[in-house]
């Protein structure tokens, strides 16, 4: 599942700005990828709903309503979206907990590998979702609560509407963080305009000083 995980992405998360890790660290990364592969309990859930955007940036997604300029911009031209959530499961968090207590160097690598893994898992899900669409329809990049001006508190209605707690075990803390921590929730626009799908997540985010921000390719 994760053997083709982008090593560059993992290095980037670990702070290797363009350079390559030495042999020892590379070996630890490979071991960690195997470990993640054997520990994950991959789950995902999605639901296709209608999307209406009003001129004042109020967006209706199925029965939900939210106001967000950046999401409105991101979903421009979409009359439908897919609501989506996915997780690597609680096993990774238990491992992270172990290494965080006992071997932080491993925790750092596990953190990076599992962050790359959850993105990879989402990409795989998204590809399947896209393949399942009618001819000529495509999916925009994932847009998550907390991006731009879409409030993090939108997690609650989004995950509730997916029954994400019951179905795939994603619950929220009081501060709107997802548990298991290696989880993603997102809104994915459905569009007939293929060109509009090539924007990377980073480009959609307002945090321009983020250390992990990718330059537009």
């Amino acid at each position: 599942m994760f053997k083709d995980l982008s090593r560059r992405e993992i290095w980037r998360y670990l702070g290797y700005k363009g350079s390559e890790p030495d042999e020892t660290v590379c070996r630890i990364i490979e071991e960690t990828i195997d470990l993640v592969e054997n520990t994950v309990a991959l789950r995902q859930i999605s639901r296709r709903v209608t999307c209406k955007i009003q001129p004042d940036d109020t967006i209706f997604l199925g029965s939900m309503k939210v106001k967000s300029q950046s999401l409105a911009k991101h979903l421009q031209g979409c009359s439908e979206v897919i609501l989506f959530a996915a997780t690597l499961g609680t096993g990774i968090d238990r491992l992270l907990q172990r290494y965080n207590r006992l071997q932080v160097s491993r925790a750092a690598v596990l953190q990076a590998v599992s962050a790359a893994a959850v993105e990879e898992w989402c990409d795989q899900c998204q590809k399947q979702l896209e393949d399942g669409l009618e001819e000529g329809l495509y999916l925009r990049p994932r847009f998550s609560p907390g991006y731009g001006d879409l409030p993090l508190s939108f997690q609650r209605p989004l995950l509730d509407s997916l029954e994400a707690g019951k179905r795939i075990g994603i619950e929220l803390t009081d501060t709107m963080l997802m548990t298991p921590t290696k989880s993603v929730s997102a809104i994915i626009g459905i569009t007939s305009d293929k060109k509009s799908c090539s924007v990377h997540h980073c480009a959609a985010c307002a945090k321009t000083d983020c250390p992990f921000r990718k330059e537009q390719e």
Binding site: L14, G15, Y16, S19, S105, A108, V109
Partner: peptide, 14 residues
């Protein structure tokens, strides 16, 4: 200086 990275820093510390 950016010649040593986080995993190595931590492994040295450990």
């Amino acid at each position: 200086k950016g010649t040593i990275f986080l995993p190595q820093l931590l492994m040295s510390a450990e």
